[in-house]
Simulated assay, not measured.
Amino acid sequence: MTQRIETEVAIIGGGIVGASAALFLRRQGVPVVLLEAALCGAKASGVNYGGVRRQGRGLEQMPLTQRAHELWGQLPELIGIDGEYVRSGHLKLAFSDADMALLEAYRDRTRGFGMNLELLDRRALSQRFGWLGQNVAGGSFCPEDGHANPRLVSPAFGRAASALGADVREGVRVTSAEHDGSRFIVRAGDELEVRSRYLLNCAGAWAGRYAESFGEAVPETAIHPLMMVTEPLPVFMHVSLGVQGGGIYARQVARGNCVIGGGRGVSSGPDLARPGRANVGALMANATQLLPVLQGAQVIRFWTGVEGNMPDHNPVLGPSAKVPGLFHAFGLSGAGFQIGPAVGEVLSELVVRGQSSIPIDAFRIERYTDAAHGAVARPESVREQTLESP
């Protein structure tokens, strides 16, 4: 027998984006039903590296990442835990003079966004971070970027939303979503039907399927970032590391374990991935070259995940170009953990006020679709209605 629910906002996907959107909507009294196929925060949001960085993002993401930086500073207030979040600093390394020139140009382009980037030459790196490999030419240091534990943070957003009255349903796989001209109808097989005025498509690597079902096909692909963690080691590294041009990233947690990422896992189906033996060897070799102290350390686990990726590495974020009341937020391209809470807040603003407080035009779905770029009729915002909370 099908259970039928009426609500104001339905959300597909309980990762950090969907769960934070539910949280911010409930903080404003908006009724929400969140449907998650697995457990909240169990997919890409919970298995990522845990970097909480602004450095390295494109200019178009600066307002979004700056707002996210403010929200991360309020994490215990938002979700009730600190999530092992530390502002350790983020060090982006260069292996050549050309890489250093790119870091310098990036520092100059991003002045005014509060990152306070400091360029370090080889000598300065040796003095401050003597544990780095000798092939590093220099780096750029962002003192207030950091890292956190995604396995703690991401599920906590779902719990916090539920504690404020969101109807969070885990283990519910959405099989269809449509609009009947007045309401959205979201179904999970024959067991559940949710009708809502608004629909938020936050389904991560699977969100492109829902966008396509509403006539907005986009070139979202799946990527499988590869990661590993070592046994606890004496603490030698307090910063989070990255490399100009990508390739490897690393951090050490308070318990001494080093979390290291780089390269890609192997797809083992449309919804699954595995580390892959050849890729594991390359990651270990690159890690010991960058961090010689890791030689002889035991790796206790390898893993990967499934993340949505867009060709320009920017998310799809904002209103549908075709269906009033539909909002997309997906394709965060392996860098969504830090901006996730701000993306959720933007979604809540689009529902409640009809507009975002920060610019998001660069992320419109129209950049990938053939839809007209003119104005699209939208339902009035929640704040313009007489709305009764449950």
Rank of each mutant, 00 (worst) to 15 (best):
A287N: 02
A377P: 06
A21K: 01
G256N: 09
R67L: 15
V343K: 06
G318H: 05
A342K: 00
L387Y: 07
V168P: 01
G276L: 10
G262P: 04
M1D: 14
P219L: 06
L290F: 04
R57W: 10
E191P: 05
V293F: 12
G281H: 11
H179D: 03
G112D: 09
G276F: 02
F236L: 13
A37S: 15
R122P: 07
G246R: 08
L164R: 04
Q385C: 15
G245M: 10
L317Q: 00
A222P: 11
D271L: 15
A19T: 02
P270A: 13
F214R: 02
V382R: 03
I16Q: 01
I260K: 02
A342M: 04
P31S: 12
E231Y: 01
M284K: 13
P390T: 05
R169G: 03
F24T: 07
A21L: 04
W303T: 00
H224W: 13
E8M: 14
V86K: 14
P234G: 04
A203T: 01
G281L: 12
D312A: 03
T288A: 12
A148I: 00
H238F: 10
L152T: 03
A22E: 03
F363C: 09
P275T: 08
G83H: 08
N257G: 09
G247V: 09
V351H: 08
L192F: 08
I11H: 01
V352Y: 14
D82M: 11
G189N: 01
F113G: 03
K322P: 08
S162N: 11
T304E: 07
V229G: 08
R195N: 08
F95C: 11
G73M: 10
P150M: 00
G344I: 05
L119A: 07
G56W: 02
S333L: 07
R109P: 08
G14Y: 00
S182E: 15
Q66M: 12
R4L: 13
R26L: 06
P150C: 01
V266S: 05
A124E: 14
F141H: 13
G133W: 08
P31W: 11
G318M: 09
S268M: 12
H147Y: 15
L78D: 06
D82W: 09
G181H: 02
L294V: 00
A38V: 09
A377T: 09
D97W: 04
A207N: 07
S140V: 11
M115T: 05
W303R: 04
P155Y: 00
G261K: 02
G80I: 08
G15K: 00
P311A: 01
R209K: 14
P379C: 03
E220I: 13
E216G: 06
E36I: 01
E345A: 13
P31I: 04
A362S: 11
L59Y: 06
L71H: 03
G56F: 01
E345Q: 15
S96G: 04
M227A: 12
G51V: 06
